[in-house]
Each structure stands twice: as C-alpha cells, then as structure tokens.
C-alpha cells in the first residue's frame, strides 16, 4: 500500500505528463505550460508572460501579413 502513495512530485509530474489528454484543452496553451514546468520556470509571472506572448503571436501573423501586403 505504501508504494502506491504518491508524493507531491509524483502528482505534479503525472499531471503534466497527461495534461494534453484532458478533453477540450488548447494545445498551444498546454504546450507552453508543460515547457515552463520542464524548464522549472513555472511561476505566476512566467505563466502570465507566456500566455500574453501566445496571444500576441496569434494576433501578430495577421498584422505582419497586412504590413507585407501594404
């Protein structure tokens, strides 16, 4: 029984290993969170910045295209 007990580390690692299988999630958002976790950079400000970057990257291509075409 004792071996079945998960440590906090086990719970977190298992969660990040399976996070993509959660139904209905956005892959880019999840990838970013997994990346931060694997680099040991999962902090509030890093998550906030990463999500903002993702948002800007989603908005940027159109802007670049517009500029390119102008």
């Amino acid at each position: 029984m004792r071996d079945k007990i998960k440590s906090g580390k086990d719970v977190i690692e298992e969660f990040f290993n399976n996070i993509l299988h959660v139904e209905g999630v956005d892959k880019k958002t999840v990838d970013k969170l997994v990346e931060l976790f694997s680099e040991n950079k999962l902090t509030d400000s890093n998550i906030q910045n990463a999500l903002e970057e993702l948002k800007q990257a989603e908005l940027e291509p159109r802007k670049e295209k517009d500029h390119g075409e102008n």
Binding site: F15, I19, V22, E23, G24, V25, D26, T29, V30, L33, L51, L54, K55, E58, L59
Partner: peptide
C-alpha cells in the same frame, strides 16, 4: 485566444 486560454486553464 483568451477564451481558449481560460477554458484550458479551468479544465486542467
């Protein structure tokens, strides 16, 4: 984008 992020964070 923000709605997708919000839904994702809520689900996970």
């Amino acid at each position: 984008v923000l709605t997708k992020q919000q839904v994702t964070l809520e689900l996970i």
